[in-house]
Design a protein around this nucleic acid. Structure first.
Length: 369
RNA sequence: GCUGGAAUCGUCUAGUGGCAAUGACAAGAGACUGUAAAUCUCUCGCCUUCGGGCUUCGUAGGUUCGAGUCCUACUUCCAGCA
């Protein structure tokens, strides 16, 4: 069983430590999205230096390239990528949702590779096997998310997720046993969309399973998220960690997520937006490509101690973006990733100090003014 | 000086009698949430009550219902010959 220690509680919020074979994660924590075993535009050294504690890679992408066997041969994700810290893998479930030409059957999902059109099928078992080969510390159950106003569709996807969960749990334990290994861990994924009764049902179902933690999936907007998380996290066992899948573009997502009992987060938005010139500041997100920054020689965010803010100014960043220099994306990604990592670290600190409410109010008041 | 050729939005460019005029870049703005994202969208002559109105394709004339497109002259540039 994955060791999770709770150090401090405040309502549903908690500060804790997840002990993984590759090191500890002090939670709440923002996990870097390293879909193809790399955080786009950043080196692992840069990730460590900006304060990241863990990364999350994607089974679907690594299956296509370079192949999960190759990662196993390399010694696993941590060794292969030179990220010598805690790792997660997402199951590939999100890709069922996001790729075109996906056929879902009870057995699994049939995809076409977006790279060369190769057809292949992913099942709960094959996802577990692939994640086993990749060798991350924490694996996600293979789920089916949906985005629908139609409750029946949602319910159907949720029930399939539950049936798949049973198969994931079985296959996960079979793999552990047959390889005489106990150092890989499985999270169930809670679904149910915007329907809180379905969320409750999914949380109950997942809570009863022999898993090490929980992913909360299929969340697309902050609207109604707090209530949904309250529903789910009041049901999930307190002593197991919870990961809010894919949320974190907006600081409020992370604040509400932590406030309502989530321990870890991952999101592609900070680095994607960085590459597109949209940068976080304490006063809200700015587009550094805007003409008004052409001769603004002040730091992007004076309060920030990232490499970008400590050494460069807005006019320089603006110039790098306008001339499409690679360094623009590097510096911007360092800053945005640092911003969200630090934000969640600050949330943790405020929970530890009993100042969460104050931190939250001050942050939100300034950011969304 | 002669003979060809060429002049269209900030730049390059499409255009061969129905045109406010093609495409690219540049410029201006927006989007992005378990990454098919170094991506995508919108604006880009002026005005507008969004119906439309007005002024544009080197300059000035002309032919035509209608001209960026055909004709004449001029201006500038390019190539070749002197």
């Amino acid at each position: 069983m994955l060791k999770f220690e709770i150090e401090k509680k405040s309502g549903l919020a908690r500060a804790g430590i997840i002990h993984t074979p590759h090191g500890d994660i002090k939670t709440p924590a923002f996990v870097g999205a390293a879909t193809r075993a790399t955080v786009k535009a950043l080196t692992m050294k840069e990730m460590r230096e900006l304060g990241s504690q863990a990364i999350l890679a994607n089974t679907y992408h690594l299956l296509l390239a370079p192949g999960t066997d190759l990662i196993k041969k390399a010694g696993g994700l941590a060794e292969f990528s030179s990220w010598h810290g805690p790792t997660f893998t997402d199951s590939g479930g999100f890709q069922i949702f996001s790729l075109p030409d996906v056929k879902i059957t009870e057995n699994g999902a049939k995809f076409k590779s977006h790279i060369n059109g190769d057809k292949f099928e992913m099942t709960p078992e094959s996802s577990m096997q692939a994640q086993w080969a990749i060798g991350a510390d924490i694996h996600m159950a293979f789920d089916q998310l949906a985005r629908s106003e139609n409750k029946k569709d949602m319910e159907e996807a949720m029930h399939r997720t539950h049936r798949w969960l049973d198969r994931c749990v079985e296959e996960h334990h079979r793999l552990l046993k047959s390889n005489a290994c106990s150092e890989q861990y499985l999270y169930a994924v809670v679904q149910g969309g915007t329907f809180n009764d379905l969320r409750a049902e999914s949380a109950k179902y997942s809570a009863a399973k022999d898993v090490d933690g929980f992913g909360i999936g299929g969340v697309f907007v902050a609207d109604g998220m707090a209530e949904m998380l309250q529903t789910v996290n009041n049901i999930l066992p307190e002593n197991k960690p919870r990961h809010l899948l894919g949320m974190g573009q907006e600081p409020i997502d992370l604040i509400l997520g932590a406030e309502n009992g989530c321990d870890t987060f991952d999101c592609v938005a900070p680095t994607r937006m960085a590459r597109n010139g949209s940068l976080y500041t304490l006063d809200g997100r700015i587009n550094i490509k805007n003409a008004k920054y052409k001769d603004d020689f002040t730091p992007l965010m004076p309060e920030c101690d990232c490499e970008c803010c400590k050494n460069y100014n807005k006019a320089y960043l603006h110039h790098l973006f306008k001339t499409d220099e690679i360094t623009a994306k590097v510096l911007a990604s360092i800053h945005n990733e640092h911003f969200v990592v630090k934000l969640v670290d600050n949330i943790r600190e405020s929970i530890m100090n009993d100042t969460f409410e104050k931190y939250k109010n001050e942050f939100l008041k300034r950011y969304y003014k």
